[in-house]
């Protein structure tokens, strides 16, 4: 099968700092997770693939063609960036339709495609509200909608679950899996193994700009589960939320860094996220942000590189 994405010793340098370094990888259809701690080069890799950055060295091909300045290739790519930047003064449908038009759809088709994409990310009812009035999770879903509105063959999602509440997370995971099943190539970056695992078992493990391993996720998962996993929830009543879940065996410890934050330690992230979702919905808690600090993953990556070297996990 011809890979959708193919890189050969791809490097991107920011002055003397390497964003990605000698990256050689092939990615085909379906969902692939790009996993690595912050600073691993995930966003740089995705920006290179989206044509936002020009490679410093090496080869990058998408659908067999270079990306930088190649409009034919860009036409087939959808990109959802990591950051929260968005046109706050536009409504969701205006923004997504504008992006569709810039992808080549005529005005009527763009409106229709924008409505379909917004329905797909469950924002149909809020489509005519200014994006500035949206919650962070809703803004994230608008970003997803603009990435898929022109029906691209390769979709790049950079940390798509950041800041989303459990319900939005479930919806986004379902969307990404559906896109993969439709035969599209979907590349999803995250620093949280649990997030990637919910979408796919195919991963590329990045560390310090290089591929540490690629292939099946399960072996890496075992290693990471040896380390405590932390989940941070920002909400108005963190102590009440903690009381609802603290007795469960999946919860190792809870902390309150401030009066708006609950920090949970767990060695069973799957069960922990499930418990959290139930407790939040049943208790009617208003969650401002749900994040997972990546210290656990960082420590695992350091452990892997220090004790086993890249070869030790390459067959994971």
């Amino acid at each position: 099968m011809t890979p959708v994405v193919e890189t050969n010793k791809l490097s991107k340098w920011y002055g003397k700092i390497a964003g990605v370094n000698d990256l050689t990888v092939k990615i085909g259809a379906g969902v692939t997770g790009l996993l690595g701690p912050n600073g691993a080069g995930k966003s740089t890799a995705i920006k290179l693939l989206s044509g936002a950055l020009r490679p410093s060295k090496g080869e990058l091909k998408v659908f067999g063609e270079p990306v930088w300045g190649n409009l034919e290739t860009l036409r087939r790519i959808g990109h959802c960036p990591e950051h929260d930047g968005i046109y706050h003064d536009l409504t969701a449908v205006e923004f997504v339709a504008a992006m569709a038009t810039l992808s080549g759809l005529d005005k009527r088709s763009a409106q229709s495609a924008a409505s379909t994409a917004l329905d797909r990310v469950k924002l149909g009812d809020a489509r005519n509200r200014p994006i500035g009035q949206y919650s962070k999770g809703m803004r994230q879903r608008v970003k997803l909608a603009q990435a898929i509105v022109h029906d691209p063959d390769l979709v790049l999602f950079d940390e798509p679950l950041t800041g989303c509440d459990p319900v939005a997370r479930a919806q986004i995971v379902a969307l990404i899996k559906a896109l993969g099943k439709e035969g599209k190539a979907v590349l999803v970056s995250s620093h949280i193994l649990h997030e990637i695992e919910a979408m796919t078992d195919q991963i590329v493990l990045l560390y310090k700009g290089q591929v540490l391993a690629d292939g099946n996720i399960y072996r890496i998962r075992e290693m990471i589960d040896e380390h405590p996993h932390k989940v941070s929830v920002r909400c108005e009543h963190p102590r009440q939320l903690a009381a609802a879940i603290v007795e469960q065996s999946a919860i190792s410890a809870v902390h309150f860094p401030d009066d708006q934050e609950l920090l949970i330690e767990t060695r069973m992230p799957d069960q922990c996220y499930g418990l959290l979702a139930s407790a939040i919905v049943e208790g009617g808690f208003s969650v401002a942000a749900l994040t997972s600090p990546d210290n656990n993953l960082q420590s695992v990556f350091e452990y892997l590189t220090r004790n086993r070297g890249p070869e030790g996990v390459a067959d994971a």
Partner: peptide, 11 residues
């Protein structure tokens, strides 16, 4: 505003 990427990722 970090919105340039939306434009430059279009064809």
């Amino acid at each position: 505003g970090r919105t340039l990427g939306y434009l430059f990722s279009r064809p």
